[in-house]
Simulated assay, not measured.
Amino acid sequence: METFIDILEVRFGKNQPILTEEILCVFSDISRQAVYKRIDAAMAEGKIARYDRGVYYLPTETRFGKSSLLGTQVATKRWLQSGNDVYGYVSGFNLVNESGVSDQVPNTLEITTNKESSRLREVKPFGGWKRITLRKPRRPVNARNVNALRFLDLITDQQIQFYDEYEMDALKKLARKAGRSMIYDCSASYPGRTAKKLAECERYRVFA
């Protein structure tokens, strides 16, 4: 007979973030109180560990003791992606760095995600970041449009006329990945200044 931990391991694997709502979903046939009791019992036995409020994982033994999660793993699961389900992307200076336009690594993590309903909200930092801010997207994020939204966020806040050759190549690569038609479709959700930046992109042959 499969145990509580066996079921979680088959579903999520070892050393992977498991959100409370996911555990409740897996054991939807029993009460929430009963699920929390099983979590507490498993934690007492050292079979499950809590990374942060609402985030658990199944640890393994290492030469340094029990394993731990990386902050990036937790942030990804909470706000960006789970399997093929994409629901967010890093934004702000993190986006500039991730896209290759800048090599500066910010100590603030900014994320735009479907999981956030506020225009802007700061949450308790973890994983080495000094600040973590969440934003509601201009339109729902999915696997098809995420790169277009990333591109539009980037050009809206950047002065692309000052880009050097390396930075412009990075922008063109992101544009190809996003697709011109998807970019223009998503641009309807952005302010007027974004349309002006798209015109600049055309002038600098970003979509060529």
Rank of each mutant, 00 (worst) to 15 (best):
Y204P: 03
P137Q: 01
K77F: 09
A75W: 14
C201Y: 11
L174S: 05
A42I: 02
E45F: 02
L70E: 15
S99K: 06
G65E: 10
V146R: 09
T3H: 07
A44F: 01
L171K: 00
S28D: 14
S91H: 02
K172I: 00
K14Y: 12
R32M: 02
T62M: 10
R205W: 12
T76Y: 11
F93S: 08
D29K: 15
S102P: 01
Q161S: 15
K47Y: 14
A42M: 13
G192F: 15
N142R: 03
G13D: 03
Q33C: 09
K177Q: 14
K14E: 15
D157L: 05
A75G: 05
S91A: 10
G13T: 02
E21P: 06
N94I: 00
S82V: 08
A42S: 15
S181E: 12
R32E: 09
I111W: 08
R138E: 09
V101M: 15
T76R: 11
Y36R: 08
E21F: 12
T20F: 09
I155F: 13
E9T: 11
R53H: 15
E22W: 04
N145W: 13
V10H: 12
T108E: 11
L154A: 03
Q158G: 00
T133S: 09
A34I: 03
D52M: 15
L171N: 00
D40P: 01
E110C: 03
S187M: 11
G71E: 06
K197M: 11
N142H: 08
K173E: 14
A41T: 06
R138M: 07
Y89K: 08
L171S: 01
L109F: 04
A49H: 07
S28A: 13
V146I: 04
L171E: 00
R193N: 11
D6F: 02
L152I: 00
G179M: 05
A143R: 12
P137H: 02
A175P: 09
G46N: 03
G179R: 08
L8K: 00
T113V: 10
E167K: 09
Y57K: 00
L149S: 09
F162D: 14
P191I: 00
V141K: 06
T156Y: 04
T112P: 02
T60I: 11
A188W: 07
K130Y: 12
K37S: 14
G92S: 13
P140T: 04
Q33V: 07
D40Q: 10
L19S: 07
L95C: 07
A75R: 07
T20L: 14
K66F: 11
K197L: 05
F207M: 00
